[in-house]
């Protein structure tokens, strides 16, 4: 009874949610929400880059994501301009440059709306394979840096004094965010990707008692949001990506209310 395009959408959405859940938790704990935004806005520049160079768009997005992350990583070592300002400069700067670059691409027809908001209902089998394969790789890499990453998040100096490799761990983490954005862009678009990272994690916080339960909780909330959003989209003919985000927000609000009723999480 489900059309293939809908099955593709569901599978791809769930796969991305499983990856975005734990990554989003770390983003939340490290107060990097705006960082995710910056990387995803920069992704549009990657699209332009890919099209200009005639290489795969996903590769272009990964390349710009990683280099944006690297630039931020290095810029944060200077102290004259604050992190939040740097992020703002990079986010909007790269979005603007990306939009200009795309406008120069005369030969190719570029579906700008598709990149900005994604089109989860247009996921092909190839896309699905990319997302599933990439998701497994990202989750495996995240699992290997999980403990050091949390130790660094709690207190960087103590973790380093206790032997955690700080730069390497943080760089891999940035790399994983960039990869996730590249994978998720087709589904949800550069403007809404951060929502998929942040909202399920924030929802899970209201129930979690350990970093790990919060990560798993965020995965489940993300999957539920994808299912609910797609169902709503089908029922009321609303745009699919935004419907998924709206469903996630609804879950978040419900979790806040439930948390308030229970006297909020004790851990």
């Amino acid at each position: 009874m489900l059309e293939p395009f809908l099955i593709h959408a569901l599978l791809a959405g769930c796969a991305v949610s499983l990856v975005a859940g734990p990554l989003g938790c770390v983003i939340l704990w490290r107060r990097m929400a705006y960082f995710g935004d910056t990387l995803s806005h920069g992704a549009l520049m990657g699209v332009a880059l890919g099209l200009l160079l005639g290489v795969d768009v996903t590769l272009g997005v990964i390349a710009t994501g990683v280099s944006t992350g690297l630039v931020l990583f290095l810029l944060q070592r200077q102290e004259r301009v604050g992190s939040d300002a740097l992020l703002g400069i990079l986010a909007h700067g790269s979005l603007a440059v990306g939009l200009i670059a795309i406008s120069f691409l005369t030969g190719v027809r570029v579906d700008l709306m598709g990149y900005l908001f994604g089109d989860i209902l247009a996921v092909s089998t190839t896309d699905l394979a990319w997302i599933a394969g990439g998701g497994v790789v990202i989750l495996a890499a995240l699992a290997t840096i999980w403990r050091p990453l949390i130790a660094l998040t709690v207190h960087e100096d103590t973790a380093v004094a206790e032997g955690v490799a700080s730069s390497r761990t943080r760089f891999i983490f940035i790399l994983l965010i960039a990869l996730t954005i590249a994978l998720a862009m087709k589904l949800i678009g550069v403007l809404l990707i951060t929502a998929l990272l942040i909202i399920p994690a924030a929802t899970a916080r209201n129930f979690a008692r350990s970093p790990e339960t919060m990560a798993v909780g965020a995965m489940l909330v993300g999957v539920a949001a994808v299912i609910a959003g797609l169902a709503a989209s089908l029922r009321w003919d609303t745009p699919a990506g935004p419907s998924v985000v709206a469903a996630a927000v609804a879950f978040f609000v419900a979790s806040l209310a439930a948390g308030a009723l229970r006297g909020t999480a004790r851990i």
Partner: peptide, 12 residues
């Protein structure tokens, strides 16, 4: 970040 004392001690 939900964190118990036990988990805090065993971070690294």
């Amino acid at each position: 970040l939900p964190l118990s004392v036990k988990r805090f001690l065993t971070l690294t």
